[in-house]
């Protein structure tokens, strides 16, 4: 029993220790940039990597997710008492509130997160970060800040695209299977649309973007060792980001809905 309490206690201390380091890492990024232009260039490059680089996967996920949700809702609500536009309103609402932001960002945690962590981790173990420090450059600011800003700009854009396309997927599936027409779908979607829901989706997207980019940068930056540890950091980045996303998902729903 004592042993178990001890283990839990150390795990907890470890967590707070790591969390403290994470906060310090984020605060350490902010110093006067050496050359603003260089940072803007890097941010644009990262926007391309994160945004354009993830577009294909986001498109595929969004369309299928909308289509599948439509079929599934239709299957579950099969009854002459329920009017067909209800399906459209349920699909569009659940896409906006939960599926588009959360599923998209969980996938991005895997794709963008592992990429960020392994890129920065490799730079750490091959002493490239030390080289930056010796030059007098704030390495965390130089490496992580452009990624974080790029993520905060591009991930919400991807989420908006995803919301749009999951509705398109829903309409397509409805038409293709003959369950409901696009007019019926849109009628339902319009009837239940609340601007607040879109705002909520964007709040989620920003939160997740911050989580993915900062958690992954942190794990990459604190890598010690060699190639093996870079792999481990990249896995950790994905797992921790995903858990943090789900946790904050619940918290945001509790606070804002």
């Amino acid at each position: 029993m004592k042993k178990i309490v001890g283990l839990i206690f150390t795990a907890e201390m470890n967590f707070f220790n790591q969390f403290g380091k994470y906060v310090l890492f984020i605060m350490g990024m902010f110093s006067k940039p050496e050359k603003l232009g260089v940072y803007i260039d890097r941010t644009i490059t990262e926007m391309n990597n994160i945004g354009i680089g993830s577009l294909a996967i986001v498109v595929i996920i969004a369309v299928f997710q909308g289509a599948v949700t439509t079929l599934q809702i239709a299957y579950q609500l099969i009854s002459p008492l329920i009017s067909k536009p209800v399906i459209g309103s349920i699909v569009s609402d659940s896409s906006m509130l939960e599926l588009a932001p959360t599923i998209t960002c969980l996938v991005l945690a895997g794709k963008v997160g592992s990429h960020i962590a392994s890129e920065i981790g490799t730079m750490r173990v091959s002493e490239q970060i030390d080289a930056l420090e010796v030059m007098g450059i704030n390495s965390s600011g130089y490496l992580a800040l452009p990624k974080i800003i790029a993520g905060l700009i591009m991930i919400p854009c991807l989420v908006i695209i995803s919301i749009f396309l999951s509705n398109a997927g829903g309409i397509l599936a409805g038409e293709a299977s003959g369950i409901l027409t696009s007019e019926e779908y849109l009628q339902g979607a319009r009837a239940s649309f609340l601007p607040y829901n879109l705002f909520f989706a964007l709040i989620k997207a920003f939160t997740y973007a911050f989580i993915i980019t900062t958690v992954s940068s942190f794990h990459g930056y604190t890598t010690r060792g060699g190639a093996l540890e870079v792999g481990a950091s990249s896995t950790k980045a994905v797992v921790y980001s995903a858990v943090a996303i789900l946790f904050s998902d619940y918290l945001l729903a509790q606070l804002l809905l």
Partner: peptide
């Protein structure tokens, strides 16, 4: 920090593994 950065601009270092930005 500020003065440190001035000194660091006067330092060059060749790392054992070269540490070129790949």
């Amino acid at each position: 920090y500020r003065q440190l950065r001035e000194v660091r601009k006067e330092i060059g270092m060749l790392f054992q593994g070269t540490a070129l930005f790949d």
